[in-house]
Design a protein around this nucleic acid. Structure first.
Length: 833
DNA sequence: TAATACGGCGCC
DNA sequence: AAACGGCGCCGTATTA
C-alpha cells in the first residue's frame, strides 16, 4: 500500500488501519516539537496537539512568545493511540521515517518515545527533561510530555514545562549556556591570591559570585573547605581553605586562606566589593561572618528565583540552572564519593570539589543576569518589588541580610534547663513504656507502633473505634478513663514528643551557650518563615502546661537584656478586613474593645446568644471562633457539620443515632450551612472578596499579595480545583500577615539600634532582646513601631493591636504592663559545652 | 541498607 | 474519596 505520509512504512505496520493525523506547521521550521501519537481529540480535529495537551503546549508557547503557526509540530507516530497507552516499538519503527531531524535547529522531544527517536535513549525523560544537548547551532531539549502533568495530577510541575519551552526561545535568539563554568582555576600560591584580590579591589567587577563549599550544612559547626569566586561566565577561581582536608586527600593544593595575609586580603576584597552575589546567601554569609568576614551580599540567585517560583523543593542551584539554562547536573560526580545524604563533603577529593564549586559560582553569575532580566519585565513588577523592596517596604534581600546578623548572634540558651530535662525525661518515658507493656502482657509491645496500639486498643481491650482505625489524640481523649492503657498512652506520647522532638533537637543545636535557628526565607509557598533542626516556630505554648513548657524555657535573654514578645491580636482577621475592605469588619475591628467572635456568635445565634447564660455564651463564642478560623482555611459545611453534629444530638446524644455513630447527619449539614450563611450575612464584602480570590486564581493564574508575593496556580484541572480554591482563599491572608510581621522586625532592626535586637518572628509575633537600659518610653516606642507597621505598609486606617509580654525566660514571660522587668530569680549556670 | 510513606503532633 | 490553609520532625512500616 501507499504510505499515509512520506517516509512512513505503513505496509508493514500492524497499526496501519488506525486513524491518521498529519504533522502541522512549516516543513522547514527552525523548531520541531515532537510528541508521541495523536489521541482522541487529535483524530477528531485532524491535527496534532488539539486536546488538553495541546492547550498546555499553546499556553507554554504563548508564554515565550513563540508562534505555534511557525513551528513544526509532529508526533513520533502519526496514527491513533489512546491517551496513556504507550505504543509498541514496532509502531515507532514503522513511522519514524517521516521525521526530519536535519532541518530544525531546535528539537524538542516530548516524552520517552520522542526522546528515543531523537537521541536513541528510550527512557529517562524525567531525568533529562529540560537539559539542552548539542551545540548553540543545533540543540535538543527533551521535555516531559505535557499530558504527563495532566495524567499524573502534578499541576505545580507544569511550570517546568513552560520554563523548558522558554529555553527554545533562548536558543533561537542565539543565547546558549554550554560555555558556562567550563573552566576553573585553583589558586596555588599566596602571591597569586594576593595579586588577584588586589586586582579585584582596584577594579571590582559588576557582579562577583561567591560560593563556599563546607564539610556540611551547619554554618555554625561545619568547616569551610574552599571559597569559589566568579566574575567571568566561563571560568571560576577557587581558593582552598582548610589544610586538614587537603592533607587527608594527599592533595598538592595549599590551604591558602589559613595564611593570615591572604585571609585579610580576601576579607577586604569581599567587604569592599559592591556586587557580591551568592545562592542561598544566608548560609554563606553566616559562615563567612563566623570567620570574621562581614560580606554584604547584594544579590541572591535563590531569592531571585523564589520570588518568581515559590514552590518548595525547587530552589536548588542545579535545578534552577537546568530549568533556566538547560544545564545538566554537574554535581553527579560528587555522589560517587558520598554514600548517603548526611555524608560530609570532606569525602570528596579537592580536585573534584573545587571544580564543582567553581562551576556553581559561574552559574550564579549567569543566573543573576537571566533572572534579573525576568524580574525587570513589567509583568513581574510585584515579585521585583518583593525582592528589592520599595518605599517603606524592605526587600527580601534586606530581610535576608538582617537574618544573617540575627542568626549569627543567635539566642542565649540555659544549659541547666536543658540538662535537667534531658536527665529526667528519658527515664520517665521508659517508665511509661514499661507500664504500657505490662497492660499488654507482651514483651514485644512497642508503644510507638501504631499497629500495636490499634491491636491492643480495639481488639484486645475491645474499645470502640471512634474514627476509623485512628489512634490519634482526639480518639484517645474520647476513650479516656475507659481503660488505664489509654491514659498512659496519651502521657507517653506527650513525653515522647517533648523529649524526642524538642529537647533532643534543642540540645543538638547548643553551641557554647547559644543557639542559631536555621530559618529559611524560602521554605514556604506563602512567604512565612520555616526552619529545621532548631525550629522556634513550633515550640509548644507554655499555656499547655508544665511538661510542654520545657522547650521554650531553655531560651533566655541576653546579658543585660530582657525578652519582649509582641503578638498581633487577631492578625489574620484584620488582614482579611483590610484586603477585602469590608466596611462592617473594618468598623468592628477599629474598636479595640470589640469582641469579634462574640459579635459573630450573636449574628449566628441571635436570641439564643443574647439570652444565654454565661456558660452557653462561652460555648457559642467558641463555635464562632472555630468558624472564623475554619472558613479562613477554606473549610466547608460538611466538615463543620461533622465536628458540631446536630442540635438534637447536642441536646441528648440518644436523639440522633447518626451523629452518635459518627455518620454524616443531614440535619447537622443543614445547620452548618445555615451557620455559615449567618456568619457571612454581615460581611458580604468579605464573601465577595473570597469568590474574587478564587476567580483570580483561575483567570490570572496567581494570587498576589500587597507585598508583591505571588502564589501561582500554573495548571488547574478537575482534580486539583478544590484544593486550589481553598488555597486561593487563604494564601493572600496568610502571606500578608506574615510579611507584615517580618517587615515590623526589619524596621525594629533598622530604626531602634542598640536598645533592641530582634530574635525572630513566629508568623504573627516578634520576639526580641531589649536592653535593661531601655525606659518604659523606649518600650512603648518599640511596640508602636511594630503596631503601626501593618497600617503603614498596607496603607490602611485600620489599627492593629498587640499583646506584649516580657521576662527573662521564653516560656515564662508575663504580660508587659509598662514596667521594665527586674532580673531577679533567673539562675543561669555559666555557659559550658 | 537507604529512601520513602504514613500516622501522629507541635506551631500560627 | 474526601472535602482545613501553611509548616517540620519523630518513629514505624514499607518499598526499592
Amino acid at each position: 500500500m501507499e504510505p499515509k505520509f512520506p517516509g512512513c512504512n505503513c505496509s508493514v505496520c500492524p497499526f496501519k488501519d488506525r486513524e491518521f493525523v498529519p504533522p502541522e506547521g512549516p516543513k522547514d521550521s527552525e523548531v520541531l516539537f515532537l510528541g508521541q501519537a495523536p489521541a482522541r481529540n487529535e483524530v477528531r480535529e485532524g491535527r496534532p496537539f488539539a486536546g488538553q495537551a495541546g492547550v498546555c503546549l499553546n499556553a507554554a508557547l504563548e508564554e515565550s512568545s513563540l508562534e505555534r503557526g511557525k513551528i513544526l509540530i509532529d508526533n513520533v507516530i502519526l496514527c491513533f493511540f489512546a491517551g496513556g497507552e504507550r505504543p509498541p516499538r514496532e509502531a515507532v519503527e514503522c513511522c519514524r521515517g517521516h521525521i526530519d531531524l536535519e532541518t530544525p535547529r531546535v528539537i524538542v522531544p516530548l516524552g520517552n518515545d520522542a526522546l528515543g527517536v531523537v537521541t536513541n535513549r528510550w527512557d529517562g525523560i524525567m531525568s533529562l527533561s529540560g537539559e539542552a544537548f548539542g551545540s548553540p547551532e543545533k540543540v535538543v531539549i527533551p521535555l516531559v510530555h505535557p499530558a504527563f502533568y495532566l495524567r499524573n495530577n502534578m499541576p505545580e510541575s507544569f511550570t517546568d514545562f513552560v520554563q523548558g519551552v522558554s529555553l527554545v526561545r533562548d536558543f533561537l535568539e542565539g543565547r546558549s549556556y554550554f560555555h558556562v563554568g567550563s573552566r576553573f582555576r585553583v589558586l596555588r600560591s599566596r602571591e597569586e591570591a594576593l595579586a588577584l584580590f588586589e586586582s579585584l579591589r582596584s577594579s571590582p567587577p559588576r557582579d562577583l559570585a561567591v560560593d563556599l563549599e563546607a564539610s556540611g550544612p551547619d554554618p555554625f559547626g561545619d568547616i569551610i573547605l574552599c571559597v569559589a569566586l566568579a566574575w567571568d561566565e566561563e571560568e571560576g577561581v577557587v581558593i582552598p581553605w582548610d589544610s586538614e582536608y587537603l592533607r587527608q586527600h594527599n592533595s598538592e593544593f595549599v590551604g591558602l586562606l589559613e595564611d593570615e595575609e591572604v585571609f585579610r586580603s580576601l576579607k577586604s576584597c569581599l567587604e569592599l566589593q559592591p556586587g557580591v552575589l551568592a545562592h542561598n546567601s544566608l548560609y554563606d554569609a553566616c559562615m563567612l561572618k563566623r570567620e570574621g568576614i562581614d560580606v554584604r551580599v547584594e544579590n541572591d540567585t535563590l531569592l531571585m528565583h523564589y520570588v518568581l517560583d515559590e514552590r518548595r523543593g525547587v530552589q536548588g542551584l542545579k535545578n534552577i540552572a537546568r530549568r533556566f539554562l538547560g544545564l545538566s547536573d554537574w554535581e553527579v560526580g560528587l555522589k560517587d564519593y558520598l554514600p548517603n545524604k548526611e555524608a560530609p563533603f570532606t569525602l570528596v577529593p579537592p580536585g573534584v570539589l573545587f571544580e564543582y564549586a567553581a562551576k556553581d559560582a559561574c552559574v550564579e553569575l549567569v543566573l543573576r543576569r537571566k533572572l534579573g532580566q525576568v524580574l525587570d519585565t513589567p509583568e513581574n513588577a510585584g515579585p521585583k518589588r518583593l525582592y528589592t523592596g520599595a518605599g517603606e517596604q524592605a526587600g527580601l534581600m534586606d530581610i535576608c541580610r538582617m537574618f544573617v546578623d540575627v542568626i549569627s548572634r543567635g539566642v542565649r540558651m540555659d544549659p541547666e534547663a536543658l540538662s535537667v530535662a534531658l536527665k529526667e525525661m528519658p527515664s520517665r518515658l521508659e517508665e511509661l513504656s514499661e507500664s504500657l507493656r505490662q497492660y499488654t502482657g507482651s514483651e514485644f509491645y512497642n508503644p510507638g507502633s501504631v499497629p500495636d496500639n490499634r491491636y491492643y486498643l480495639f481488639e484486645k481491650f475491645g474499645l470502640p473505634k471512634v474514627k476509623g482505625d485512628s489512634t490519634d489524640k482526639e480518639v484517645l481523649e474520647t476513650l479516656r478513663g475507659e481503660h488505664p492503657f489509654v491514659d498512659l498512652l496519651l502521657e507517653y506520647r506527650q513525653y515522647q514528643k517533648v523529649c524526642n522532638t524538642y529537647m533532643v533537637n534543642i540540645a543538638r543545636s547548643y553551641r557554647s551557650g547559644r543557639g542559631h535557628p536555621d530559618f529559611k526565607l524560602f521554605g514556604t509557598v506563602t512567604g512565612r518563615l520555616s526552619a529545621n533542626n532548631l525550629n522556634p516556630l513550633v515550640f509548644p505554648r507554655e499555656s499547655r502546661g508544665d511538661l510542654y513548657s520545657y522547650p521554650k524555657r531553655v531560651f533566655v535573654a541576653d546579658d543585660g537584656c530582657f525578652l519582649l514578645q509582641a503578638d498581633y491580636k487577631g492578625m489574620e482577621l484584620r488582614v482579611l478586613a483590610v484586603l477585602s475592605q469590608d466596611p462592617w469588619a473594618l468598623e468592628v475591628l477599629s474598636n479595640p474593645e470589640s469582641d469579634w467572635h462574640g459579635e459573630m456568635a450573636e449574628e449566628m445565634y441571635g436570641e439564643l446568644y443574647t439570652g444565654a447564660d454565661e456558660k452557653l455564651k462561652k460555648e457559642l463564642r467558641v463555635i464562632a471562633k472555630m468558624l472564623v478560623f475554619g472558613l479562613n482555611y477554606g473549610r466547608g459545611a460538611p466538615s463543620i457539620a461533622r465536628q458540631l453534629r446536630c442540635s438534637a444530638f447536642r441536646e441528648n446524644p440518644e436523639f440522633c443515632p447518626r451523629c452518635r455513630a459518627g455518620l454524616d447527619c443531614p440535619r447537622a449539614l443543614r445547620e452548618a450551612d445555615d451557620l455559615i450563611e449567618r456568619y457571612f450575612s454581615p460581611i458580604p464584602v468579605i464573601k465577595h472578596w473570597r469568590t474574587e480570590q478564587v476567580r483570580l486564581a483561575h483567570t490570572v493564574g496567581y494570587i498576589e499579595s500587597p507585598f508583591g508575593r505571588r502564589r501561582r496556580f500554573p495548571l488547574i484541572t478537575a482534580s486539583n480545583k478544590h484544593a486550589v480554591d481553598k488555597q486561593a482563599l487563604n494564601t493572600a491572608v496568610q502571606s500578608t500577615a506574615s510579611d507584615c510581621t517580618l517587615q515590623a522586625m526589619y524596621r525594629l532592626y533598622r530604626e531602634v539600634g542598640d536598645l533592641v535586637r530582634p530574635l525572630w518572628t513566629v508568623h504573627d509575633a516578634v520576639l526580641m532582646n531589649v536592653s535593661l537600659r531601655a525606659t518604659p518610653r523606649d518600650v512603648e516606642g518599640i511596640l508602636s513601631i511594630i503596631e503601626e507597621t501593618p497600617r503603614v505598609l498596607l496603607d490602611t486606617d485600620l489599627p492593629f493591636f498587640l499583646d506584649a509580654s516580657a521576662g527573662f525566660r521564653w516560656g515564662a514571660l508575663t504580660p508587659y504592663e509598662g514596667v521594665i522587668p527586674e532580673l531577679a530569680d533567673l539562675t543561669l549556670l555559666p555557659s559550658a559545652d
